[in-house]
Design a protein around this nucleic acid. Structure first.
Lengths: 213, 213
DNA sequence: TCCTTTCTTTAACGATCGCTACAGAACAAT
DNA sequence: ATTGTTCTGTAGCGATCGTTAAAGAAAGGA
């Protein structure tokens, strides 16, 4: 009953995603976006609302594609330790991949923001905090299963690994190789606590049930 | 023989520094700078050249003041390990201090940059790479003195601690407390290699001279 | 074929960007 | 007091910002 759009919305969104990934939210102009998406401003505004909603949709797409490895790793590994280690290793591979911009969009895309885009900055911060909370949940699981001492500071561990991942993102943006990032990941895993005080590094299995005192 | 300027150049530069620190290079407009500095644009351009040179001068001032603890720690501590540990601990204190913006200006101020400020981005990247190289030099010293095995991957260690520091900066910008950052620092130090293979964590002193095979 | 609808394009909106011409004000030397 | 120099404030430069009005173009239903 009406004219249909001449461009593929998903392709255009993907190109916007890559542009935001490279330069960040504020530093990416609508002119640069339309050039990358192959459309004119009215088409962008008709299909996506405005620059901010386009960005939010790009972030959602990022989480479902390039960034999905994190939630997959956290969901699929049997132990918290394996989950954290896999997140680190896959972050190293993803951040250094040359098939897309370096680093993590959610970590880097809204760092330098004026007051008018503070909401966008807050949105990504919430996503980062959610990722940190997801790390903590898996680590808590290892404590509950007796794989870690009951007095383990799981929030502190989650903060540490979140910081390492964010540092890996920055390093990759500065040109660090996949191997260099992997080495960061390996060194970070050496901070994982001993399963019982005194048994250095050996994971001797579950000696207690859940919720040890 | 002529009119003298009515504002304190150092005070104005300090206020520009704090503004750049908060919002970053591109996201800070000249209007915001002049408002913070208490001057009008012609005074800014007469005293500092342009926005980019003002930023470069602010970065230099940052390195000599807020950021000077890093080079001090690296210069003053007796061993590489002590130097790295002190950098981490003082970073935790500085990044979380509420007497100035959170995090590190050199890490955060030029993350989201359009093509026109790629040079500024490159400048800060060089400073970050120089800091990483300075870490490596101190770690190399521990290898040369026999405090670390001769086959230690010192570049990898330096990259790891650089990443941790950058992650601490990001965490502090997201609101992490001094205590949380200190815990990151402590966990990161547990990745420091054993002085000899087999002696877990114990630093048993120098057993060889310099340049062990 | 005409109508309706929604797309596309061109062009431009007001606001802000970094930056500066210009004129007046303040100081030092004469 | 006059002159010369450099500051300061106002006001505005051209360019770009995010966004949109207006008109032509393409599709389906009548």
């Amino acid at each position: 009953m009406a004219r249909q759009r001449a461009f593929d919305r998903e392709v255009a969104l993907e190109r916007a995603l890559l542009t935001f990934w490279r330069h960040g939210y504020e530093a990416t102009s609508v002119a640069e976006l339309t050039a990358a998406m192959g459309i004119r401003p009215p088409s962008l505004y008709a299909a996506f609302g405005d620059k901010r909603r386009l960005f939010e949709e790009a972030v959602r797409r990022y989480q479902e594609t390039y960034g999905a490895f994190t939630s997959r790793a956290l969901a699929e590994e049997p132990t918290g330790r394996a989950a954290v280690e896999r997140v680190l290793r896959e972050s190293a591979a993803e951040y250094a991949s040359d098939s897309h911009p370096a680093g993590c969009l959610i970590i880097t895309a809204a760092v330098n923001c004026g007051p008018e885009s503070a909401e966008v900055q807050g949105l990504l911060r919430e996503f980062r905090e959610a990722a940190k909370a997801a790390l903590k949940e898996r680590i808590d699981g290892d404590v509950a299963a007796g794989r870690l001492p009951a007095d383990t500071d799981t929030a502190g561990l989650a903060t540490f690994y979140a910081a390492v991942i964010q540092g890996m993102s920055t390093q990759s943006r500065d040109g660090a190789s996949h191997a260099a990032l992997l080495h960061i990941a390996e060194l970070a895993m050496s901070a994982w606590p001993a399963s019982r005080s005194g048994s250095q590094g050996l994971d001797r299995g579950v000696l207690r049930g859940d919720l040890g005192a």
